[in-house]
Amino acid sequence: MNRSNRVERVLASLLGALALAAGAAAVLLHRFGVDRPVLDPVALDWARRHLLPVRIGLIALGLLAVLLGLWWAWRAVRPERHPDQRLDDVVVTAKALASAVRADAEGLPGVDGARVAVVGTPALRLRLTLRHGTDLTGVWLELDDRVLSRARAALGVDVLPTAVRLDLDKRPRQRVR
């Protein structure tokens, strides 16, 4: 239900594993007394003899890293999609569906406010603010029985994945006189 960060996590994990492996290899080589330079002298001699192709390759590798970084950054900050739902010949906008579910949720006893977002194909992200002292079990049952069942019926689906976050209002302050 949350915005997927799978690609970011996988890339960060791969980069971290690569850096960890390189560091562990350097520590192990140093620990066991291998006294060699990091870059092999044979490879350095070859690179000096083929300087132009090596430079072109390194520039291409750098540009690829920049493009990958830009793509990664764009993917992380791009706006989340709120898709409209198509029901036979009618298109229900995500905003209309969210407004209807919000109005139903705000009508529940003990609910002070609701925020709804339509994500996925279709799925809901619902955030309810409850008054102090509200019966949590009652709100939960009413939410499923009244609000979500109406949304499922309106969309014509049997299953409507919903992430629900409940926020509790603070107890009203009592002034001592």
Rank of each mutant, 00 (worst) to 15 (best):
L15N: 13
R49I: 02
T93G: 07
R48D: 12
R9P: 01
G113T: 03
V157D: 03
V147C: 05
L67S: 14
R36M: 09
R31Q: 09
R78F: 04
S99I: 07
R48P: 02
H132I: 03
G120M: 00
E80C: 06
A26G: 12
D35Q: 13
A22H: 05
V38M: 08
V119K: 00
R81I: 07
T162A: 14
D169W: 01
H30L: 12
L97Q: 00
S4F: 02
R55I: 14
R48K: 11
G62T: 08
L160N: 04
V42W: 04
A96D: 15
R150Q: 15
A153G: 09
R131K: 13
V27G: 07
T134I: 04
R48A: 13
G23H: 04
A94E: 01
A76F: 10
R165F: 04
A154K: 02
L28F: 11
R31M: 02
L124H: 00
R3W: 10
R131A: 11
S13Y: 08
E106F: 02
D104N: 07
D144C: 06
L64P: 03
R86I: 12
P172G: 06
R55V: 15
P109A: 08
L148W: 09
A25F: 10
A151L: 06
M1D: 03
L20W: 01
G138R: 07
R165P: 01
A153K: 13
P122G: 01
R165K: 10
D135T: 06
Q174A: 14
V77E: 11
G16L: 12
A24G: 13
A47L: 10
V147T: 10
E106N: 06
D40A: 08
W140T: 11
S99P: 01
G57Y: 09
L28D: 08
L67P: 03
A19N: 05
S13A: 15
L39V: 13
V66L: 15
E80P: 03
R48H: 11
G62I: 00
L143Y: 05
A123D: 03
R152M: 06
A151P: 01
A22P: 01
I59A: 14
A22G: 11
L141M: 09
I56A: 06
A151I: 05
W71E: 11
V118R: 00
A153R: 14
V66M: 10
V157Y: 04
G156I: 03
D144R: 12
R9N: 13
P161M: 04
R127F: 00
L136R: 08
V91F: 03
A76G: 07
F32H: 14
A12S: 15
G107Y: 06
A22M: 12
A21M: 11
A73H: 15
R49A: 15
R81M: 07
R177N: 09
D167N: 10
V164C: 02
R173T: 11
R81D: 14
V77C: 12
A25M: 09
W74C: 12
P37K: 05
A65W: 08
V119C: 05
L58T: 11
Q174D: 11
G133D: 09
V42G: 08
A114S: 05
G138L: 04
L143T: 05
A12N: 12
L124R: 00
V116A: 02
G120H: 00
G16M: 06
L97T: 01
Q85E: 09
L51Q: 12
L108M: 10
L61Y: 07
V116P: 00
V27Y: 11
V139S: 01
D144V: 07
R165A: 08
P109K: 02
L15T: 10
D84H: 10
L143A: 08
W46E: 09
